[in-house]
């Protein structure tokens, strides 16, 4: 099986949200009660029932508001934090690069929810498990494109072999740079390479994407080193005070 990727060209996104609807439709996900909070962007965050959404990022530049649309969803990382922290091995990588949660194996401990650097894994009260984008593993296996890509009218969403998507991203980056615009590729190297690749027209932070994302488990070795050193100190000094008892004689 080829290694797949989705390429999101944010310079072409119009914020129509057809991808968001197509995802709900294909995956049979219920609607959510939403609020009007000063923008057409809804719901506020990804949830266990909303696996993708268009974020309407706003940036003020030279007194003008710049709208930065970006579809967000699971990034399908090579260094996937959710998969690394999962105690039950419910989360696995499919040959095409998709990260998928086995809903029968999962116990609902929600470590993956706290581990994802993108907030893409979210708990569903209905199933008692975290749920997220599967990069339409089922459709891809049947030779179709993911539902969101299929629904995209503007050409912002593309899907295919990862190398081809990367080539497409670089070609588009050159065009934009030649036109004097900002163009940054995100996902080529981040977290070992992701299976969602962005072409951004501003810094990642302006889109709410972490600049140098780290795998959640990166701090585990140093964490153990400090903790064990501390426990060693505790055993060797404070608790050794009990040797003072010996001077006072035998069994009390």
């Amino acid at each position: 099986m080829a290694e797949y990727a989705m390429f999101i060209d944010t310079s072409k996104c119009t914020g129509c949200r057809a991808c968001q609807v197509a995802c709900k439709n294909w995956n049979g996900l219920p609607a959510e009660e939403t609020d009007f909070w000063g923008t057409y962007e809804n719901p506020k965050t990804l949830t266990g029932n909303t696996w993708t959404k268009v974020k309407f990022n706003e940036k003020v530049e030279n007194g003008n508001i710049k709208l930065l649309f970006a579809k967000i969803q699971c990034m399908h990382c090579n260094d996937a934090s959710c998969m690394a922290v999962c105690a039950t091995k419910a989360i696995s990588r499919r040959p095409g690069g998709m990260i998928v949660i086995d809903q029968n194996r999962c116990v609902g401990c929600r470590n993956c929810v706290t581990a994802c650097p993108f907030g893409a894994v979210n708990f569903s009260e209905e199933t008692g498990t975290p749920r997220k984008c599967r990069l339409c593993e089922d459709r891809v296996a049947a030779g179709l494109q993911p539902a969101c890509v299929n629904a995209c009218l503007s050409g912002a969403l593309n899907f295919g072999e990862r190398s081809e998507m990367l080539a497409l991203a670089k070609k588009r980056q050159k065009e934009l740079l030649a036109a004097g615009e900002k163009a940054i590729i995100y996902g080529e190297k981040e977290l070992g390479g992701t299976h969602v690749i962005y072409l951004l027209t501003d810094e990642p932070e302006a889109y709410g994407l972490p600049k140098d994302p780290e795998i959640a488990t990166s701090v585990v070795p140093s964490g153990w080193t400090w903790a064990l050193a501390g426990l060693g100190l505790i055993a060797l000094f404070p608790l050794r005070r009990f040797t003072e008892a010996r001077k006072k004689g035998g069994e009390a």
Partner: peptide, 19 residues
């Protein structure tokens, strides 16, 4: 260390939570 192996900045940013 369980809390540190997440992406929550307060827990993940330093290696001192286990200590």
């Amino acid at each position: 260390i369980l809390l540190a192996s997440t992406s929550v900045p307060m827990w993940h940013a330093t290696p001192f939570l286990g200590l």
